[in-house]
Design a protein around this nucleic acid. Structure first.
Lengths: 247, 247
DNA sequence: AGACTTTTAAATGTCTGACAAATGAAATTA
DNA sequence: TAATTTCATTTGTCAGACATTTAAAAGTCT
C-alpha cells in the first residue's frame, strides 16, 4: 500500500483510500488486524495524527472498528445489514432534503421500488410480517394519533411489507427509499377522512398479501401512490394560497 | 450542541454525532460555515486534534467539505447524487462480499428493482438512452471481448435502462444494486453461446422499451434473471465437481 | 481613478512529544 | 492450581508548534 506524493489531496484522505481499496479488493480480509497506528505512520511516512484521521474516516464508513489495549488495534469490520441500513437512511434523507427533490419524484421512486417487492412478498409472506402489518393498521385507525405517529406507523407498515419478501438485499435497498420520504410525508396534515382512505388501502394491501394476490397488491399500491401525491398537492396549493394572501 | 460527558464513546465520535444531528435536523444549513477548528475545540472543551478527527468522520460521509486559507473552514456540503452513488456502490459491494449473500438473493433483488424501473423507463425513454443501450448491445456482440469488458458493458446497458426512467432517486437506489452485483457476475465465464442469449435478450428489452411495451420488457427481464441464475448455477456446480476431483 | 502587486491575517494541514486509559498476557503469589 | 499483580502494548487525548494556502486589505504604479 502506497500513496502518491504528487497528489494534491490530504494525506489522511490518500491513506484512507489506500486502506479502503485494500479492503474492497480483498487484500485485507474481515477481522484482520491492521498494523498499529505507529507502524502505519512509519509505513506511510506520516505522523500518527495523520494516520488517525485516516482511520477515523474509515470508521465513519463502518469499514473498520478499533479496540484499545494490548493486542487491540484496528480491525477490518464485517459490515452488518443494520449498519448499512443506517448509512443508507442518513444518506437518502439528506439527499432528498438538500436537493429539493419534488415530492412526486420521491414518491414515484418509493412506490416503484415497493411494487417491485410486493409480488415476492405476496409469495413468501410469513404470519409474522402479516401480523405486524395488521397491528400497524390497527394503530393507524386509533383516533388522537399525532401526524408524526401516524407517519411512523406508516413506515413500519411498509417496512413489514418489504421485509416480507425475505430478501435482506431488497430490505436494505428499500430502507432508504421508505424512511427518507417520511420527513416529506410528515409535512402533510392528515385529516380524519384521508386517514380513513389510507387505512382502507393498507387493509386492501394486507388482504391481498394474505391472499397472495399480486395483482391486487399492485393496484392498491398504485392507488396509494396516487392518493399520496394528491394529498401532497392539496397541501402545496393550500400553502401557496396562504402565501399569496399574506403578500 | 453539547456532548454527554458520561458517554463511553470516543469524544470525536460524539462530536461528529452532534454536528451530524445538527445537519440532519436543519440547524446547520447547506453551505453554512462551521466554527473554526479552534473555536469548536473551545466549545466542546476538547483539543484540536480531537475536533479534527470528528470533522474527518463527517468528511468521509460527504457531510462537510473543507477549504484552507483565510475565510476557509468546514462547510455543510450539499450531497450530490454522484457522491451518493459512490457511497452506495461501495457499501453495497462490501455488504454483498462480506456477508456471503447468495447469487440468487442478490440477483432476485437486482432484477426486482430493475423491473420496477422498466415501466417508467418505457414511458419516458429518450432517444439518448435508447442509443446508449443499442451501442452497448453492439459492443457486447463483438467477438474477443474479455469477460470483464462484457460485464462492464452489461452494467452500462442496465444503467441506461434505469436512467431512462428520468428519476434521479431511482437511479441512485439502483446504482448500488446493479454495480454491486458486477463482481459476482465477473465470476461467470461467458461462453459464446451464453453471450448470444444475453445479447438477444438485451435486444428484446431495447426493442420493447422503444415500442413502449411494458409487458414485453417485464418478460424479457424475467427471462434474463432466470438465465443469469442458470449460468451462475452451472459455474457453481462445475467448480464443485472440480473441487471434489481435487480432494 | 484604476489596475496591478505586496502584505497580512486567518484557517486548515502536518508534525513532535507526551501522558492517560484500557486491556490481555505473563509473572508472581497464596 | 487459582487468584492476584505486574507489565508491555495500543488507542485516546492533549499541548504547542510550524508549514501552507487563501482571500481580503493595503500599498504602488501608471
Amino acid at each position: 500500500m502506497k500513496i502518491d506524493p504528487k497528489s494534491k489531496a490530504d494525506l489522511s484522505a490518500q491513506i484512507a483510500k489506500a486502506i479502503r481499496d485494500a479492503i474492497i479488493s480483498g487484500d485485507l480480509i474481515v477481522d484482520e488486524r491492521l498494523p498499529s497506528e505507529a507502524e502505519l505512520a512509519d509505513q506511510f511516512d506520516v505522523s500518527r495524527p495523520t494516520v488517525r484521521e485516516a482511520l477515523k474516516r474509515l470508521a465513519a464508513q463502518s469499514l473498520i472498528r478499533t479496540q484499545r489495549g494490548a493486542f487491540g488495534g484496528a480491525f477490518v469490520n464485517r459490515i452488518a445489514f443494520e449498519d448499512a441500513y443506517g448509512q443508507q437512511i442518513t444518506t437518502s434523507t439528506l439527499l432528498l432534503s438538500m436537493n429539493d427533490v419534488s415530492f412526486d419524484v420521491a414518491c414515484e421512486a418509493r412506490f416503484a421500488l415497493e411494487r417491485a417487492c410486493a409480488p415476492i412478498s405476496a409469495m413468501r409472506r410469513s404470519a409474522d410480517h402479516l401480523a405486524t402489518m395488521r397491528a400497524e393498521i390497527h394503530r393507524q385507525s386509533q383516533p388522537g394519533l399525532t401526524d408524526e405517529a401516524f407517519c411512523a406507523s406508516d413506515v413500519a407498515f411498509h417496512r413489514a411489507l418489504v421485509d416480507g419478501a425475505g430478501n435482506p438485499v431488497l430490505s436494505y435497498q428499500l430502507a432508504g427509499a421508505i424512511e427518507a420520504i417520511e420527513p416529506l410525508m410528515n409535512m402533510i396534515t392528515f385529516s380524519a377522512r384521508s386517514r380513513e382512505v389510507i387505512v382502507s388501502l393498507h387493509t386492501e394491501i394486507a388482504d391481498a398479501i394474505e391472499a397472495r394476490d399480486t395483482r391486487r397488491v399492485d393496484e392498491a399500491l398504485s392507488e396509494l401512490e396516487a392518493y399520496s401525491k394528491k394529498l401532497a398537492h392539496e397541501v402545496a396549493s393550500q400553502r401557496k394560497d396562504k402565501t399569496s394572501t399574506n403578500t
